[in-house]
């Protein structure tokens, strides 16, 4: 049997918080109890819609919503976070969450416009230079250095169990004045955690020219 490999992970060179793909996730906390409606989009096409109940009696555990599966009748505690991710996606997703007030709905969360308190997680594999930017023009240089050892930080799940490396994340704040820090150096597969302090849509783009990369390798 030919091994299945997710080539999208290896081929994508841009991560955009407004277009949720593998290797990224967005976390938000719904603080007000009530009934919400989650709508999932692929581009402009609505692909799924389902309710989300924020209930104080719900357990305070992390609520995971896989946008590729997108069929969650979820109940989440207002003190717990909800994380949107698409680890197996082959296309980009966006999420709109609206709260019901009677029959009317009001927008509460839009993945295309992250708000203060949201968190954007991203993992880069390909060595080289990247720029993270937001719509305000702020930039953060991210350098992914080649591995010093042969062991990349991935988790291995086998019959024997889960073998998990000691994953250290790198935190970047996205503020009204820019990114802090403005230069980041990470290893391949080392997660970046963008703490959103101001309305943002963060794009991470690969910048290293091909020639330089060939020379480096």
């Amino acid at each position: 049997m030919k091994p299945y490999i997710n080539k999208r992970i290896l081929s994508q060179s841009t991560l955009d918080s407004g277009e949720i793909t593998p290797m990224m996730a967005i976390m938000h906390r719904f603080t007000e109890p009530g009934t919400y409606n989650v709508t999932v989009f692929q581009g402009n096409n609505q692909t799924a819609t389902f309710p989300l109940i924020v209930d104080e009696n719900a357990p305070q555990t992390l609520n995971r919503i896989d946008l590729g599966a997108a069929n969650c009748s979820c109940a989440v505690n207002p003190k717990a976070h909800t994380i949107f991710h698409a680890p197996k996606a082959t296309t980009e997703y966006s999420v709109l969450v609206e709260k019901y007030k009677g029959t009317a709905k009001s927008k509460v969360f839009d993945s295309k416009n992250l708000q203060d308190g949201d968190v954007f997680f991203a993992t880069l594999l390909r060595p080289g230079d990247y720029h993270a930017s937001n719509e305000r023009g702020a930039k953060c240089k991210i350098t992914v250095s080649p591995l010093k050892t042969r062991r990349m930080q991935f988790t291995v799940t086998s019959q024997q169990g889960i073998n998990r490396p000691n994953i250290k994340t790198v935190q970047v704040e996205c503020t009204a004045t820019g990114f802090k820090p403005e230069n980041v150096n990470i290893q391949p597969a080392q997660p970046l955690v963008f703490m959103i302090k101001t309305p943002s849509r963060i794009k991470i783009e690969y910048k290293t020219p091909e020639k330089q990369e060939a020379k480096a390798s």
């Binding site: 091994p3 299945y4 490999i5 997710n6 992970i9 290896l10 593998p22 290797m23 990224m24 996730a25 992390l62 995971r64 994380i83 991710h85 680890p87 197996k88 997680f121 993992t123 991935f154 988790t155 997660p191």
Partner: peptide, 8 residues
């Protein structure tokens, strides 16, 4: 939280 799987 799983962000992506290389070999599944």
């Amino acid at each position: 939280v799983t962000l992506g799987c290389l070999l599944d």
